[in-house]
Structure formats: structure tokens, C-alpha cells
């Protein structure tokens, strides 16, 4: 749980935290690898939504260097397989995600991130 596809979609949403609030920094992670359905059409469709730099940063934070630093122009089969693995098969079961701007820590426990905000972070 907490796959990098999810991480790539979550930004800090505390009050006033609107710039430099993404990507959340991954720390103290406990990882697990679990196989997922390989669906090239899904990946091609989703790719335009991916923030590539954030994906690279996050994958390196947790020790995976399989993807190229530059967003690829063409997706060949090898690259699709690598993208599939990084986005969908690496799970962060424990750890935390920290906002680079305000420093809010979103903890992950048993694979479920707690993205709830405290009262003073809303108003």
C-alpha cells in the first residue's frame, strides 16, 4: 500500500500551503513488493498525469533507480514494464510523508496514510 502512483497524486493541503507542497518527502519507509496486473493501455493513459520529476525523486528516495531521469518521449515495452513496476508494484507499508514546504508529517501505518489535518491547519 501507498504505491508511487498514489504518492504522485498527493500534495500537502494544509491551510496556506499552496506552493512547494509537492512531492511529499518519503522517510523511514518499510517496503514490500507485490505483483500487479500489467496493463499497457492504463499506463499510457495515466502517463500524462504523472509528474515525472516527482516520480524520479520519490523512487530514488526509496532506493529504486530503474527509471530514466528525463521523461521519456516514447514508451517501449521495457520502459512500460519498468514504469509498471515503479508505479504499481512497490508498496510503502510503513513510513511517513513530509511536506517540503510546511513540514507537516503524514504518517503511513499498515499501508494507510493518514492525510487528515489538525484543526489549526484548516483555519
Amino acid at each position: 500500500m501507498v504505491r508511487l502512483i498514489t504518492h504522485n497524486l498527493l500534495a500537502c493541503h494544509a491551510k496556506g500551503c499552496t506552493t512547494n507542497n509537492f512531492p511529499l518527502k518519503l522517510t523511514d519507509v518499510k517496503l514490500a513488493l507485490r505483483e500487479a496486473d500489467f496493463n499497457p493501455d492504463f499506463l499510457r493513459g495515466f502517463l500524462p498525469r504523472v509528474e515525472w520529476d516527482a516520480l524520479i525523486q520519490a523512487s530514488r528516495e526509496i532506493g529504486d533507480t530503474s527509471l530514466p531521469v528525463e521523461r521519456p518521449e516514447m514508451l517501449d515495452d521495457d520502459l512500460l514494464r519498468q514504469l509498471h513496476h515503479v508505479l504499481l508494484e512497490i508498496h510503502i507499508d510503513e513510513g511517513s510523508m513530509t511536506c517540503p514546504n510546511c513540514g507537516h508529517v503524514y504518517p503511513i501505518s499498515n499501508g494507510i496514510p493518514n492525510m487528515l489535518l489538525a484543526e489549526h491547519e484548516i483555519w
Binding site: R3, L9, C12, I112, L116, I122
Partner: peptide, 14 residues
């Protein structure tokens, strides 16, 4: 894909 705890009125979707 994933499960997250949050309130939809204060959601973290980028």
C-alpha cells in the same frame, strides 16, 4: 490501489 484517511472537503488530490 490505495486507501487513504482524509475528509473529502479537505482533500490532498494534486
Amino acid at each position: 490501489l490505495d486507501l487513504c484517511t482524509f475528509d473529502i472537503t479537505r482533500n490532498p488530490w494534486r
